[in-house]
Write a protein that binds this DNA or RNA. Structure first.
Lengths: 203, 203
DNA sequence: GTCTATACAGAGATAGAC
DNA sequence: GTCTATCTCTGTATAGAC
């Protein structure tokens, strides 16, 4: 699949971005930023991947950083949605479902996830603040699930904040090591991590 | 502590690098790469942090990438040393000591660790291959400890390779979120992670 | 070994035609 | 909205004096 191909399931992240040219640019920039990093990527790279001229980048985005910001905001919102849409009576079940979804998202969408997790430093202070608010909600959601389980006695952890950090670490780090076509499918990564987290939390 | 200050314990990583000017440059480059990323760092930044002229970078290093390579190689070797120097009869004790050491290293030396873990993509193919060999030894060392524990029945894990990946994830990701002056000391991070890993492995 | 000065290439962003 | 052409600045690396 090329960066400009929007038909695959991987590109449903940009579904709501219009017009199509802006969406292609976003997908192209995500691929480029994930592969080489924000600062190593040139606006010419992005334009070429999107099949357009170098100047076309600036039709829909004011700057290269604004492109990054949109990717980061949409990516953070998508992963937050994933966590908040988890349901279930049992805290252990909720946590398992959340970890499976979150970890497999970091595998399936490892390009977007890499930009989301590792390019925060390239955002302007204002944009970083906006994304930071989403990140705090993500952390609070996981911590809430953990506290629920501790309250019912389903989890047994000495340090809730530390355990929250560890759960997020396990999932986020998937974006660093995951390679498509490797030993594990995204679903398998999710299942593996859900199991490891259950044990880590003493469920 | 400034980047050029070599007296602190944090700078013992570069102890064996001579002459002193080359060591200062390495420490300055590490600080800059960790703070802003390799590609966002200019050779002028590095030189200024080391208190020298822009051209001084090229007295001891052929290129900016060579500077990165030295940091990466020394950093990888240091963290591998940490793991291989762990001793003890009991596999659980060995794993706990290894995780505590490895995780706390990623906190204490979070600047070096960030360069080591997140700037591999900026290395030339030859340099990446050399560093890759060290990385495989690091992974094999952790996997070996895990297999030892499984053999004696001290650990109970369904997927040894997956668990190895998870143990490394937990430790490596410390370099991403750790901030000095935060809630936890490096030693506390090490202890927390050693405990979480013990439980994750069913010890 | 270190400096000042600078060559050369490449990057982000804009102008103006279509 | 998209293109071609280009402006301007910055960045890596080198030359040559001291």
């Amino acid at each position: 699949m090329t960066a400009a191909d929007e038909s695959g399931p991987l590109e449903r992240t940009w579904r709501d971005v219009t017009p199509p040219a802006a969406r292609r640019m976003l997908a192209a920039a995500t691929a480029a930023f994930a592969e080489r990093g924000y600062h190593a990527t040139t606006t010419r790279d992005i334009a070429a991947r999107a099949g357009m001229s170098p100047a076309a980048v600036y039709i829909h985005y004011r700057s290269k950083e604004e492109l990054l910001f949109h990717i980061s905001r949409i990516g953070h919102a998508a992963s937050l949605d994933l966590l908040t849409s988890v349901t279930g009576e049992d805290p252990v079940e909720r946590m398992s479902a959340a970890v499976a979804a979150f970890a497999s998202w970091h595998a399936e969408h490892h390009t977007t996830a890499r930009v989301v997790q590792y390019e925060l430093g390239a955002l302007t202070p204002d944009h970083l603040a906006e994304v930071g608010a989403l990140r705090r909600r993500i952390e609070a959601t996981v911590r809430g699930m953990l506290e629920d389980g501790v309250a019912t006695g389903a989890f047994e952890v000495p340090d809730v904040r530390g355990a929250t950090l560890a759960v997020l670490s396990l999932c986020v780090d998937v974006a660093r090591w995951y390679r498509p076509g490797g030993r594990r499918t995204p679903a398998a990564v999710g299942a593996l991590h859900a199991d490891l987290v259950r044990r880590m939390l003493g469920a």
